Computed example of a mutant assay.
Amino acid sequence: MSRSGWRRALGAQAVLAQASWVGIRLIIGYRALFEGADPVFLGALASSFAVPALVAALPTGRLADRFGGTAIAFSGLLTAAAGTTAMLVIPGLAVLLAASAVIGLGHLMVMVGQQAFVAHVSSGGSRDSDFGTLTAAASIGQLIGPPAVTLAASLTVPPGAAPDTAVGLMVCLAFSALATPAFFFLRRTDAGLRRIRRHTDQPRANVAGVLKAPGLWRSLVVSGAVLVTVDLMYAFVPVWATQQGISAAVVGMLLALRAAVSVLSRLGLTRLISRFGRKSMLIVSIAAAVLSLAALPLVGVYGAIAVMVGLGLGLGIPQPLTMAWVVSLTASSSHGAVLGLRMTVNRLAQVTLPVAVGSFAAPLGVLGIFWVNAALLMAAIAVVAGSDAGSPPGVDDPA
């Protein structure tokens, strides 16, 4: 398949899979609130999505190196659909926790599979651009998912009533089903990549070898801090909206605005990095997220528009940059493994930090939750400032 062909197929899959993912993350927050969940439970719910990845991310990355990222992503879509179906037909807070863990495993497989495919198919100067394409498609999914799910869930209930979460989950399930056919367009390209890798002499590094890559820990820490911010936003924005008297449909549109800004922020990203450097782009964008998180508890619905623009920049730009940063530190035979390791660190942050933030900041409500999150991102800025992330993008894989 041509470069433009696999980009279109992968982009379509990423859009639909991400729309399903963020729709689920948002709608189960409303279901949990309806069943009487408190901030501590919401933090546990956010963590439950990440628990399976603590043991599965690195093996998933190795499987992607061996069998191809497209097959792993396809299996992940089926797994996530199974978890969504269980959540749809079986009520209860305990089921929310268990089903969210299954969905989290499926989403992990989708993300690692797609990222490994991009890492294997790209090289040199195309890497930032290709990861930018993947993450832009994911942001389009984030743009589509929240309004589609919340509007559909609001159509069947009276104005001002809680959304119908069953309808919302069915929309998410439909997105997952529509994402699966892309596998049949991508597998031929992936098969060719596997044949090429089998004829190279590059050994697969073990975990210790991957961890020894200079500067790897810094890229992993920054990546984890940014991703956990996305999780906390989806978990706690419904709490902020409930306190402000803002409807679920409006919340969906605000989150869609954030996603739209993330998409726009990735246009021309390669040129921006070439001009200003990866380190400068990371510092400036994460600083925008810090300011936005600090402001969110203090504003109403109109102020939230500006906040979502800031979060769109602050959460949109760093994700493709940290992916390319991580991949540039390892050989091509270990790209899936290092992306799995990245996901392990991300999920460790997702397991520990939401519960910690929810417990520590619960007495202060949403003010404490978002301000503690802003402090985490300030620490990430310090890590970037001490790194060599500004190295020219597109450096060839080390031998």
Rank of each mutant, 00 (worst) to 15 (best):
S129I: 11
V121Q: 14
F131T: 03
T135F: 12
F117C: 05
S122C: 05
G113Q: 11
M109S: 01
F131E: 05
A136K: 05
V110M: 13
M111D: 12
M109Y: 03
R127V: 07
A137T: 08
V121C: 02
A136Q: 08
S129T: 15
G113S: 06
A116K: 04
F117K: 04
D128P: 00
V110Q: 13
A116S: 14
Q114G: 01
G113Y: 07
L134K: 04
D130E: 15
V112Y: 07
T133D: 10
A119S: 12
Q115I: 02
G113H: 06
A137K: 09
G113I: 03
F117I: 04
S122T: 13
G132F: 01
G125Y: 01
S129E: 15
D130R: 07
A116T: 15
M111F: 10
G125F: 00
M109H: 02
F117V: 05
G124Y: 04
V121S: 12
S126G: 12
R127Y: 10
S129R: 15
H120P: 00
S126V: 05
D128R: 11
G125C: 02
S122R: 05
M111V: 10
T135W: 12
V112I: 14
S126Q: 14
S122I: 03
S126A: 13
G124V: 07
Q114Y: 00
F117H: 10
F131P: 05
L108K: 02
D130H: 04
T135A: 10
A136N: 04
T133P: 00
A119I: 07
A116F: 02
L134D: 07
L134F: 08
V118G: 01
S123H: 12
Q115H: 04
S129Q: 14
S126C: 03
H120Q: 10
F131L: 02
G125N: 09
F131I: 02
V112D: 08
A137C: 12
S123D: 15
G132M: 08
V112L: 06
F131H: 03
S123R: 15
Q115Y: 00
M111C: 00
T133A: 14
L134S: 02
H107F: 14
A137I: 07
L108S: 05
V112G: 01
G124P: 08
H107R: 08
V121M: 11
A119K: 09
S122V: 04
S129P: 02
R127F: 06
A137N: 08
Q114R: 09
L134A: 03
Q114K: 02
S122G: 11
A116H: 01
S126W: 07
M111K: 05
G124L: 07
D130Q: 11
A116D: 08
F131R: 02
H107D: 15
G124N: 09
H107V: 14
G113F: 02
G132C: 05
H107P: 00
G113A: 06
F131G: 00
R127W: 10
G132I: 07
S123P: 03
D128C: 01
S123E: 15
A137V: 08
T133R: 11
M109L: 15
F131A: 00
D130N: 14
T135C: 00
